[in-house]
Design a protein around this nucleic acid. Sequence first.
DNA 1: TATAAAAATACAAATAAAGTAACATATCTT
DNA 2: AAGATATGTTACTTTATTTGTATTTTTATA
Lengths: 198, 198
Amino acid sequence: MPAQIQNEKYEAILQTAHDLFWKFGIRRVTVEEVCKEAGVSKMTFYRYFSNKNDLAKEVIEKMFSDMYTGYRSLMDQDIPFEEKVKQQLMMKFEGTNEISAELVKDIYGDPGSELFSVWKSRADKIVQVVLDDYKEAQKKGWIRQDLNVEFILYMSNKTVQIASDPQAQAMYPDMQSLIMEIANMFFYGIMPRNIVTK
Amino acid sequence: MPAQIQNEKYEAILQTAHDLFWKFGIRRVTVEEVCKEAGVSKMTFYRYFSNKNDLAKEVIEKMFSDMYTGYRSLMDQDIPFEEKVKQQLMMKFEGTNEISAELVKDIYGDPGSELFSVWKSRADKIVQVVLDDYKEAQKKGWIRQDLNVEFILYMSNKTVQIASDPQAQAMYPDMQSLIMEIANMFFYGIMPRNIVTK
DNA sequence: TATAAAAATACAAATAAAGTAACATATCTT
DNA sequence: AAGATATGTTACTTTATTTGTATTTTTATA
């Protein structure tokens, strides 16, 4: 049994599905389309996946798993906490980590579905991990003690959204300046560095 | 008969369809979806359009008509030709004018269709107008006499594509610098200004 | 309150997508 | 090269979605 080729086809399907689902959501993409794009026959598809839902589930799980791996390897580095948060922000800005709006729409459109609960459980797990890391960092004095950690995460997401708001973009000559401004705001607030709130 | 409301619904359908077709192409978008998004019942839809194809046709025609209007009003301004070309380039860079890849895929996927011929005839017409304008400008000495005008238009399009190539982007600290470099290259080539080719 | 436009509902007809079966071909292993 | 296994092709049935229309109800307005 040629194990490599098996993997190749399987991976091709997964990758193609990821790209298409990313752009168009799940609903608008057909199994045949995925097969064509991946250069795989329909029979081969059904040998690896029992249906589109199954495929979507694996795509989602791989996505979260990759996301988690990336996060973990960043956090395990021996660099200052602030540097880690900065890099996370930057990764989000660059869209590498961003989650597809169309995919989310499809999944949140049917809260009773299996996909919804898979998505939710994986997402919740990551949030939990991040929360724990941040609480730990807070204990160690790497971030302000008087801040609600949940709120920090919330603001971190908002912050990224602002970067894609045309109104905000209009205020800066280029994207880079806007991103810098947002990041600085997120880290240091609006107060000059030498004034310390009690 | 409240003529304004008629127009409102009609315009809403057209605008919604434009946005959806832009994002997903025509194939992936259903009439019901357009109706829902536009806040219009299916019956109302069929009062204004006979089917999805008809809708797509009107969307495309409006798009080209708007494009032409924008181009015309730019060219009719009393500013140097170089300035006009610069502004056109910039508009393209900013994506205002850019044509949707998904839409083009759907339309060019079926060269026998009515939509294809509508698209082609409108596109050809615009190209013809632009060509004429450039030839006129060449006669008046606003651009180099020894250049093939068709080739200038071709390069103008290529030029815009380069701005979205990650490999090119990697060579510059930000988008703005890249765009400036491309624009300068397009206008003046690589030679220093005081050296004139015979 | 009479009237016209639009919405809601329900549905038959058409089209598209999903999924399967039988057989053909390519590719790897030994 | 032989046999096994993965993949492809074609054709087909079933299921789901979309289209387009007819009928009734609601809404706005003049």
